[in-house]
Design a binder for these strands. Structure first.
Lengths: 152, 152
DNA sequence: TATGAATTGTTCTAAAATGAACAGTTAATA
DNA sequence: TATTAACTGTTCATTTTAGAACAATTCATA
């Protein structure tokens, strides 16, 4: 039980630690997205698409965890804005292949460079980190993320 | 410019790294909150209140970054459920002092112990971490969070 | 291959979250 | 002290997000 309490305490500390970063990330992303006429899911979808090149809507859902109705509506809006390309999958009339357009890439690049955006903020924070501190952080995050993924 | 690109790249890596944890945290918290009849802000408010004992609604806003209309409504619902105590501040008829009730504490304790909840998940992930790995993580998070806080 | 089950995405309705206008209170300063 | 400005919280209208029912397609297997 001593053991239990110890770990519970550490898990609470860890959760709070993530939360303190996370709430700031959300605050800044929400503002950045809104400033550029996007909702948070829309912005997230764009960043996922630039990373993965091509995804079906289903795969996009697995990566982002948004409800499929949210995805459907967000994707639809992005396509209407010409930021996303949507084309049927060969030999499959149910799934839909998504990819980012040039206009989408350009918008993300602009956002990326914005003074008060999340990238600039992280860029400053990251400058103070030692190389091994940085790599340990990524490694530990990966470990934790993998653990959380397993939960359903 | 070489320099710039390097840091930009690291900041993107870092952002993705946080996002991969964050999206899982949100997914699990959303489910846990819903299972216990709470919205995400409501759950977040309870956890903030258990940490800070007493807060005015204004202070709560500074800690959580929720819109004040969201706070007002969430707090109201929590008070109606008997999870939060709301009393006027002495010598100030504008501000309102908030504190968590016994019922609120009890609910959080229950949630805390739930099998598929965020605490248990973090508890498992944290077991594999070395002491110094854990402390370095907290330290680095703190550094990053402080940096982000400065952005407005 | 025919039939029922599972999958993928959309639509509609309801809930959650926000911004803006507002009311009441306190603070600043003339 | 009177008057204006700033602050704290609420309310209302709107936008955003999610859940549930649905349509269309594909898969499993009899």
């Amino acid at each position: 039980m001593e053991f239990e309490t110890l770990h519970t305490t550490r898990s609470v500390q860890l959760l709070r630690s993530f939360w303190n970063v996370q709430k700031n990330v959300m605050r800044i992303i929400q503002r950045t997205a809104a400033d550029n006429g996007l909702s948070v899911p829309q912005y997230t979808i764009l960043t996922a698409m630039i990373l993965h090149k091509e995804l079906t809507q289903k795969n996009l859902g697995e990566k982002t965890f948004f409800a499929k109705s949210t995805l459907s509506q967000s994707v639809d809006a992005l396509v209407r804005e010409g930021l996303l390309h949507r084309q049927p999958v060969e030999d499959n009339r149910r799934e839909i292949q998504l990819s980012i357009t040039e206009k989408g890439k350009k918008l993300l690049k602009t956002i990326h460079e914005q003074e008060d955006g999340i990238h600039m903020a992280f860029g400053e924070a990251v400058q103070d980190l030692e190389d091994d501190q940085f790599h340990n952080l990524l490694k530990t995050h990966l470990h934790i993320a993998q653990h959380l993924e397993e939960k359903e």
